[in-house]
Design a protein around this nucleic acid. Structure first.
Length: 173
DNA sequence: TCAGTGATTAGG
DNA sequence: CTAATCACTGAG
């Protein structure tokens, strides 16, 4: 299976967030064993206008990586204990990103990073070139369910209501 | 329901 | 320098 290349990450965050579920995050462990985690849930953060997006505050030390070319990782610590992992999307100077909220078998953005082992040392990593983390397309195109994003009430309308959270919709039978 | 925990940011 | 905030989780 081939590594997903730059072009994929240059689309807008909503498009990338809709395509990511079903794809696999591949981690090369220090002992060179490869671990794969299928993405199950994402959220899109759409640039400077989106008040829920950290980049709406402008270019700061922390948000700088969101202004880089799509394919880079944006990792930050929240509540003093949980690392959040985002994939930057769009062209350079177009600050958008997709939060990874779930990756099998982990549910919840803090559990994902803890489970797969990403932390601040992965901030600014380029997924299209890194030797320790990248993305692969399995070809699986799951059914998705969209809904409002979590934990961003401070952003106010209309951002609270944007249906930019995407979850694999398990078939009920 | 609510405390833990520390980086980041705005402001004096 | 201070103080507020926070894209969460787990325990009760």
């Amino acid at each position: 299976m081939a590594r997903v290349a730059r072009e994929f990450f240059l689309s807008d965050a909503v498009t990338v967030a809709q395509r990511l579920p079903g794809m696999e995050i591949v981690m090369a462990r220090p002992d060179s064993v490869l671990k794969r985690y299928m993405i199950t849930e994402t959220e899109a953060y759409l640039g400077m206008e989106d008040k829920a997006c950290h980049a709406s505050k402008g270019r700061t030390g922390r948000t700088q990586v969101m202004f880089s070319e799509g394919g880079h990782l944006y990792l930050y610590l929240v509540y003093g204990m949980h690392w959040m992992m985002n994939i930057v999307t769009g062209a350079e100077d177009d600050p958008q990103a997709v939060l990874i909220r779930g990756a099998d078998p982990f549910s919840g953005p803090g559990r994902v990073t803890k489970g797969i082992g990403t932390n601040g040392s992965f901030n600014r990593e380029d997924m299209t070139a890194s030797g320790r983390i990248w993305l692969e397309d399995t070809g699986y195109k799951p059914c998705l369910k969209a809904g409002p994003r979590v934990g961003i009430n401070y952003a106010g309308e209309p951002w609270i209501s944007k249906p930019w959270r995407f979850i694999i919709n398990e078939q009920t039978k």
